[in-house]
Design a protein around this nucleic acid. Structure first.
Lengths: 182, 182
DNA sequence: AGCGCCATGTAACCTGTTACATGATTTC
DNA sequence: GAAATCATGTAACAGGTTACATGGCGCT
């Protein structure tokens, strides 16, 4: 089993949601998968080309309708099959995120508690922002896409994000309290 | 502000804990920082060389005491200062982990619920394993290092790991329940 | 004799980011 | 006419992993 990246499958999946152009793919991922997946144009365009080469997608080059150049991609049957094969495959290891805050905290005896508390507050604020973003995405899915077959699963991933963020915020509060007690 | 990696500071920090060799650094990171930091020899040895070049550490090449070649690294004053400067600097953005399970879940309308539930169970088991690992590390810190000045901060990072894992396990259970209701 | 652990190191490779180049259309 | 948005693409770079090469010590 090769250790290939899942970026290809992320794009394959997004192509089933109605996104057709590289630009639209980037937008959807930034807006809806942002809490567990990131991507750059430097990856998207080469992968799209590769998908066509492998017969997983077709492309229509439409520079006709007065608008700027635009390439629209469509999954082939083989492409859908490839996506389903990947969905069936067992997940590899759970990811280990590199966390700068925890790294600093680990070595914080070399720093005053004041500074450590500042970092924790900073982190907490960022988590709260993220939490609010999740709430906003959740609302827009419930308002505009509740009829969408995908919606249920999108809400599951959002729920994950919300819960993790909430726990992390609580941990920040408790850790700050413990540092202040001294 | 450059977007340099924090790997250098991870190593700088570990050198304050009594680890002296590249091998020992790898071991400590694998055993104690594993839930938020990973590293390979391919990074460690070049960085150690770089630290000496920058005057942040000194090295003693001890092939004398019957044992195999061994290089021991010691932080210089400049090295400690560099670590403290980094500890003082505000944290950059919170990390976004790439999560294969969530990616699959996001596109799971193309798959049967049975398979999705299998993946969620698989993930849950991995999280439980990880949780138990945290408990073991916690016990060994409490038993052998509770007098260590670092211990307090190490336990904070473990607490973070435990809480996140616990929330994620609960989310798995709830999501599985919702999928089974149908 | 073989295995596991201690110990160092590098080269090839993969993945992904950033910066840059280009240009049309829409909105203010 | 300026700015934002839509749209495609690449080259250079940074970061990190993997596989490989090397070798001694201690135990069974």
């Amino acid at each position: 089993m090769s250790k290939k990246s899942d970026t290809k499958y992320a794009i394959l999946g997004v192509l089933t949601t109605g996104c057709r152009t590289g630009y639209a793919i980037k937008q959807l991922i930034d807006r809806s998968l942002n809490h567990f997946w990131k991507i750059s144009y430097g990856q998207i365009y080469p992968v799209l080309k590769q998908l066509v080469d492998e017969g997983l997608a077709t492309v229509t080059d439409s520079s006709q309708d007065g608008k700027p150049d635009k390439k629209e991609y469509f999954l082939t049957e083989k492409g859908v099959l490839e996506l389903q094969t990947w969905l069936l495959a067992p997940i590899k290891d759970i990811p280990t995120e590199k966390n700068e805050l925890l790294l600093k905290l680990f070595f914080s005896r070399h720093q005053t508690n004041d500074v450590t508390i500042l970092h924790l507050n900073d982190y907490k604020e960022k988590l709260q922002e993220r939490y609010n973003t999740y709430l906003n995405i959740e609302q827009s899915i419930l308002l505009y896409s509740s009829d969408n077959e995908d919606a249920k699963f999108w809400l599951f991933t959002l729920d994950y994000g919300k819960r993790i963020a909430k726990s992390a915020i609580e941990w920040c509060n408790d850790t700050i309290d413990q540092l202040k007690e001294e």
